[in-house]
């Protein structure tokens, strides 16, 4: 009894963590489901078929996953580059207009997606810009950018600025210092910013829905099929993305721990 009282916060915390995983367990379970009819979303019969043939049975799904992957990778690339440059400028220089830049970066994070998506739609419509792949990409880079800046800034804040000063004292110019000292130290921060960007882009529905025209991303495919009945293969993609992302994060943790050990030794 005293043990429970002593550890009550940890127990409650772990229960909350379990609650957060409940839908993930359901998604994984349903990825092995063979439903009796298209309209049921309950577990009927166990099967490996969905994992062995994820593209059969739901013809439009795999192309939509490809679209999401392409947009995810391109928007991650764009947002990570633009965001890292911005974070570096904001943390390592003093200049007029910094406050304005910070507000400009904060606003997209404080706007509901439905406002961002709809306002961008009015821009594209009034400029007669055709909706599709490119408008989705533009929108994704836009809303990923602020999150990249926040993540990279946090890493820069934790870095010892004396390392960069030392390089400069040894006659490295700004570019050499950035390339040889800052960038390698910044790499973990950039990597987590990229991972965050990719998951934001791959998962986005609301902004995409406003600006997609007839292009169908994976979340849009899921939304569309929610009305007609969800094929179990959709859960295979969900479960696979979950496992891959988890593997990347765990691997990153292990590499980070190894490096710290190597440095300490």
């Amino acid at each position: 009894m005293t043990w429970i009282r002593k550890n009550i916060i940890m127990i409650v915390g772990l229960l909350v963590l379990f609650y957060m995983f409940i839908p993930v367990f359901v998604v994984i379970a349903l990825s092995f489901n063979e439903p009796k009819s298209r309209l049921t979303y309950t577990f009927d019969k166990f099967t490996f078929d969905n994992w062995l043939h994820p593209c059969s049975g739901a013809e439009a799904m795999c192309p939509s996953v490809m679209v999401s992957l392409k947009i995810g990778l391109l928007s991650t690339l764009g947002a990570t580059i633009l965001g890292t440059l911005m974070a570096y400028a904001l943390m390592r220089y003093r200049f007029r207009g910094k406050g304005v830049a910070n507000v400009l970066l904060f606003l997209p994070m404080a706007s509901p997606e439905v406002v961002m998506g709809s306002s961008l739609l009015t821009l594209f419509v009034s400029a007669s810009f055709p909706l599709g792949f490119w408008t989705i990409l533009i929108a994704h880079i836009m809303f990923c950018l602020s999150f990249v800046v926040v993540t990279v800034k946090a890493r820069l804040a934790g870095m010892d600025p004396r390392l960069e000063q030392a390089a400069m004292d040894l006659y490295a110019n700004e570019w050499q210092t950035f390339r040889r000292i800052t960038l390698p130290l910044l790499a973990p921060g950039i990597a987590s910013a990229a991972l965050l960007s990719f998951s934001l882009s791959f998962d986005d529905f609301i902004v995409t829905n406003f600006n997609s025209g007839s292009t169908v991303t994976f979340p849009m495919f899921v939304w569309g099929s929610a009305q007609r009945g969800i094929p179990p293969q959709v859960n295979v993609i969900g479960a696979a993305v979950f496992l891959i992302a988890l593997a990347i994060v765990v691997l990153g943790q292990i590499i980070g721990a190894r490096k710290r050990k190597a440095l300490a030794a």
């Binding site: 839908p23 899921v222 929610a226 969900g238």
Partner: peptide, 26 residues
């Protein structure tokens, strides 16, 4: 490890997790 576990569920699509709740609460 616990921090990773906090973020991990959110690697599964928002829509799929919400649909999973429709199955749980159906």
């Amino acid at each position: 490890i616990l921090l990773v576990l906090v973020i991990a569920p959110f690697f599964t699509s928002f829509l799929l997790r919400t649909l999973a709740w429709t199955a749980i609460l159906g």
